[in-house]
Computed example of a mutant assay.
Amino acid sequence: MSTSSDLAPAGAPAEGAPEAGIAIECRGLGKAYQFYRRPIDQVKQVLFGGRKRYYDEYWALRDIGFSIRKGDAVGIVGRNGSGKSTLLQILCGITAPTVGSLTVKGRIAPVLALGAAFDYDLTGRENAYLSGAILGLRRAQVSERLDAIRDLCGLGDFFEQPVKLYSSGMGARLAFAICAHADGDVLIVDEALAVGDDAFRQRCQRIIRDFRARGTLLFVSHDLDQVVDLCDRVIWIDRGRMRADGETHAVVTDYCKALAEEPDDPNRFAFMT
């Protein structure tokens, strides 16, 4: 497994390096999790793992490969448990792939990762400064944008309260508002637009459309109308593998047909050895 966020030296591109203009490239990406049926099995794995495996293996992702060019707006669709969130976590650097390679060019503004990184004892305002620093902003830059962040998240007096008092939807609002003002090159949105009222969603959509003019968008949602509205291309993840990658309307049409005709099979959550 390898990951990279740096360009190769001029005149000496690394073997297999992505072509110019690529924002994200995955090659043979896979992620496996270890599950222990009994606590003692984890101890046995540490002590005797060289001779025998004491865990069940679940591959959340297998053989994921795609390239996203700078300026593209790409949607990711799939049933619950298909591997979408795992893929986003890898792209955001929350978890590492088990196999394969990932190259990301530019600064990522990940709504899902940022929300997970909040300090729950700090207020929304304080988390805006903390998260801004994580995303590469100076304190003065956050201060300049603080009013816009507060207005977009629409949390009112809760902006000055500890995040531990927030609902999950309120946390998503705050994360989106910060990422929207972070000067990222790649904006990764995971269901953030599913929270809040119509006015909030409309503001978010306007910001995303403005962002598309200058950056790369990766949008994950079960709301297919939003996917069609915002994305030019869609990647369909099914049972941890890529089932389709193509023009938005064509892929969404096939995906809807599969949802209607193919039963939801619980065996897709079975351990794979």
Rank of each mutant, 00 (worst) to 15 (best):
A116F: 01
D56N: 14
R150H: 09
F159R: 15
A17C: 02
A20Q: 08
P9W: 00
F48I: 01
G240E: 13
V186R: 08
L259M: 10
Y58N: 05
S143H: 11
L165W: 02
A260M: 04
V228N: 10
P13E: 13
E261R: 13
V111Q: 07
L224D: 04
D254A: 15
A140Y: 03
F211K: 10
C204G: 11
A199M: 09
G50E: 00
A20K: 14
R241H: 06
D6R: 14
S85H: 08
Y54V: 01
D232S: 15
G136F: 02
I24D: 02
H249I: 13
I207Q: 12
I94V: 15
D56S: 13
D56Y: 06
Y55V: 01
C179N: 02
L7R: 14
C231A: 08
A244C: 02
V163R: 04
D183T: 02
D265S: 13
A113M: 08
L146H: 06
L165E: 04
A73H: 08
I207G: 15
K31W: 01
A113R: 10
S221F: 10
L193E: 03
T253D: 14
P162T: 03
G11F: 00
D72C: 10
E25P: 01
D119N: 15
R62K: 13
Q45V: 02
G83R: 07
L218Y: 02
S221N: 03
Q89E: 06
A128G: 02
K52Q: 12
R38N: 13
F35C: 05
Q226Y: 10
R139S: 12
A140Q: 08
D183L: 00
Y255R: 14
A260F: 00
G21D: 14
A175E: 04
P266T: 09
G169S: 07
M1G: 15
H249M: 11
Q161S: 12
E19G: 13
L29Y: 00
Y55W: 11
I24F: 00
D63F: 09
K52L: 00
G156S: 11
I149D: 09
F200P: 03
I208E: 05
F211Q: 10
S67D: 13
F176Q: 01
L135F: 03
S82I: 07
R138A: 09
A32S: 12
A60H: 07
I235Q: 11
R268F: 13
Q89P: 00
V74I: 03
D151M: 14
V46S: 10
E25D: 08
I178L: 00
G169L: 08
V163L: 05
C256H: 12
A23V: 08
D119K: 12
L174S: 05
Y166C: 06
R51G: 00
P162N: 06
D265L: 15
D41S: 12
I24V: 15
R243V: 06
L29G: 01
I108K: 12
A60S: 13
L47N: 07
A128D: 03
G50Q: 05
D157Y: 06
